[in-house]
């Protein structure tokens, strides 16, 4: 059943359109950087963007940092918000359920398919950015870590892979929120917008000192911690917390989705 959900996701034109859009912005940034040779001032702009001017092989990370705050979560919210509500809206949900497909299993399969989408999107963005970065910005045999030590290409590859994994996991919270909302409403748009509203609130509260007590619980709190993978030695603390936090979001919201959906009257 998970395989079926994956096939459905992969055969959807929208999946590929979304991934194409996700690639557009980093590629544009790479072109602009290559043409103007103007990097962001230190301390401003997305992580790693100032470093890519001297080493294009770091561009996958800059590209991920570019899409991470907004583009990627929007894509995830739309895809996850559509997962149940979209089936309800098109009427296919009732046919799935009388097949019969267990409702809990359907939720889990939907979540896994969303995660697979994120992984696919992130990997494609990283690969595209590597190609674009190497071609347009040139490469260096040795890259510098954030701590100023030298990283071999193998180390960069391993850490980039870890970053891809971490960013994928970071999207779990959004996916779970959108999936939960998707079981409440029959409108995919409402579910996606609800999840986005939650994220925007979370980002806003993170900038507010008065909300400090809430901050460890906010889903976006540890998003940027993928930078910690490029410190030397790797700073695991926030990464582990980030993964744990996302796990909590998944457990709680998948639980809520389960509580709501398994006894819900499907009248669509």
């Amino acid at each position: 059943m998970i395989a079926v959900e994956l096939r459905k996701m992969l055969r959807r034109p929208r999946t590929w359109a979304t991934i194409l859009l996700l690639n557009a912005l980093p590629t544009l940034v790479a072109v602009l950087l290559a043409v103007t040779d103007l990097g962001p001032r230190p301390g401003t702009g997305p992580a790693f963007l100032s470093a890519v001017l001297s080493d294009g092989t770091l561009f996958p990370l800059a590209a991920l940092a570019i899409i991470l705050p907004l583009f990627l979560p929007i894509a995830v919210a739309v895809i996850a918000g559509d997962s149940v509500a979209g089936e309800a809206q098109s009427g296919t949900l009732r046919y799935l359920l009388v097949r019969p497909v267990g409702r809990t299993r359907l939720l889990v399969a939907k979540l896994i398919s969303v995660i697979a989408f994120v992984l696919l999107a992130v990997v494609i963005v990283a690969v595209t950015a590597y190609v674009v970065g190497s071609l347009l910005l040139g490469d260096q045999p040795l890259a510098a870590s954030v701590s100023g030590t030298t990283l071999t290409p193998e180390q960069v590859a391993v850490r980039t892979a870890l970053a891809i994994g971490y960013i994928t996991l970071s999207m779990l919270g959004v996916a779970a929120i959108a999936l939960f909302l998707s079981t409440i409403t029959d409108s995919p748009l409402a579910a996606a917008l609800g999840a986005l509203a939650f994220l925007i609130a979370s980002s806003l509260l993170l900038t507010l000192d008065a909300a400090e007590a809430l901050q460890p619980y906010l889903p976006t709190r540890y998003w940027l911690s993928f930078v910690d993978l490029f410190r030397d030695p790797i700073f695991w603390r926030d990464i582990l917390r980030g993964v744990g936090l996302q796990a909590v979001y998944v457990v709680v919201l998948l639980g809520a989705a389960w509580a709501n959906f398994t006894t819900k009257d499907v009248t669509s």
């Binding site: 059943m1 459905k8 055969r11 098109s90 009427g91 296919t92 009732r94 046919y95 799935l96 097949r99």
Partner: peptide, 27 residues
Amino acid sequence: ALVEGPAAYGHLSGRANLGLLDAMGKG
């Protein structure tokens, strides 16, 4: 079962729709 009108994924062929539906669940 056919409940309150048919439903299918519009971007897929009829054959693909049946294939997906059959692969869902047991049986």
